[in-house]
C-alpha cells in the first residue's frame, strides 16, 4: 500500500496549502447545500401522518447528532495516530474539531428536547440514548477543558489524545442504546442494510442538509486547523514567508 499521502498529511506546511485551496470551497458549498436542505425540509417536504409538522426537527436534529458522533470518531482516530506515530497534525485536528463537535452535540440535545416536549410530553428523560449523548457532550467539554487547563502544549496534546481515544467507547453505546435497552427514543430510521422507513420526498432534503452540514463542518475544521498550524509553526521559515506574502 502506498503511504505517501499519509506522510504528506503529517507535514503542516503541505496541509496548510492544501487547506487554503479546499477550506473555503467546503464551507460555501456546504452552506449552500445546508440552506437548500433546510428550506426544503422545513417548508416543502410533506408533514408526518402522526407528528404533523413537529417531525421537521429531523432536518436539523439528525444531521447534527450524526455529525457530533463523526467528529468524535475522527478525534479518536487522531488520538490514536497522535499517540502511536506522534504526527504533528493529529493533535491540531483534535484541538480544532472538539469545539465544532461540542456545538453539534449541544444542538442535538437542545433540538431533541424541543421536539420531545410536544411529541413525548417531556423535555428530558434519563433513557440510555439521551444520557449517552449527554456523556458525549461532556466528553467534548472535557477535551476542551483539558486542552485549556494544561499550559505545556506537548503534555496537553497527549492528555487530550488519551481522552479522545478512550471516549470512542461511548460511540457504539450511543448507536446501539436504542436496541440494547428499553428507551423512549425511537430506533434508527436509517440503516445501512435496509430501506429507510421514510419515503424519498422526506429523506432527500435530509440528505442535502446532512451532506451540507458535513461539508460545512469539514471546511470550518480546516480553517481552524490552519490557524492552529500558524500558531504552532510560528517559528518556521515557511510561515514567515507565507505571512509576508499573503498576510493572515
Amino acid at each position: 500500500m502506498n503511504w505517501t499521502w499519509f506522510h504528506k498529511l503529517g507535514s503542516p506546511k503541505w496541509f496548510y496549502q492544501w487547506a487554503s485551496n479546499w477550506g473555503g470551497r467546503c464551507v460555501y458549498l456546504g452552506l449552500a447545500l445546508l440552506v437548500i436542505g433546510i428550506i426544503w425540509g422545513l417548508g416543502f417536504a410533506p408533514a408526518d401522518y402522526q407528528q404533523g409538522n413537529s417531525f421537521r426537527i429531523i432536518y436539523i436534529h439528525v444531521p447534527v447528532a450524526v455529525l457530533a458522533q463523526s467528529c468524535y470518531l475522527g478525534m479518536g482516530i487522531a488520538g490514536f495516530v497522535a499517540l502511536v506515530w506522534q504526527m504533528k497534525l493529529a493533535p491540531v485536528f483534535i484541538k480544532s474539531v472538539a469545539p465544532v463537535g461540542a456545538v453539534m452535540a449541544f444542538i442535538a440535545l437542545v433540538s431533541g428536547a424541543i421536539w420531545g416536549k410536544p411529541t413525548w410530553g417531556t423535555w428530558w428523560v434519563w433513557d440510555a440514548r439521551l444520557t449517552s449523548v449527554l456523556v458525549l457532550f461532556l466528553l467534548y467539554m472535557g477535551v476542551i477543558a483539558i486542552q485549556n487547563a494544561i499550559d505545556d502544549q506537548v503534555f496537553a496534546d497527549k492528555a487530550v489524545a488519551v481522552v479522545s481515544l478512550v471516549g470512542v467507547i461511548n460511540l457504539p453505546i450511543i448507536k446501539y442504546s436504542v436496541e440494547w435497552w428499553n428507551t423512549l427514543h425511537q430506533p434508527a430510521t436509517f440503516k445501512l442494510t435496509e430501506k429507510p422507513s421514510m419515503p424519498m420526498e422526506m429523506w432527500l432534503p435530509l440528505l442535502f442538509s446532512a451532506l451540507g452540514l458535513y461539508l460545512f463542518a469539514a471546511g470550518l475544521a480546516m480553517w481552524r486547523m490552519q490557524n492552529e498550524v500558524l500558531v504552532r509553526e510560528r517559528k518556521a521559515s515557511w510561515v514567515k514567508k507565507e505571512v509576508l506574502e499573503h498576510g493572515v
Partner: peptide, 17 residues
Amino acid sequence: SEVLAKHDEEYMPPEVT
C-alpha cells in the same frame, strides 16, 4: 403519575396513510 408517548421510527406523509 406521568404518561409519555413513544414515537416509532416510521415516517409517512398523511396522503400515504
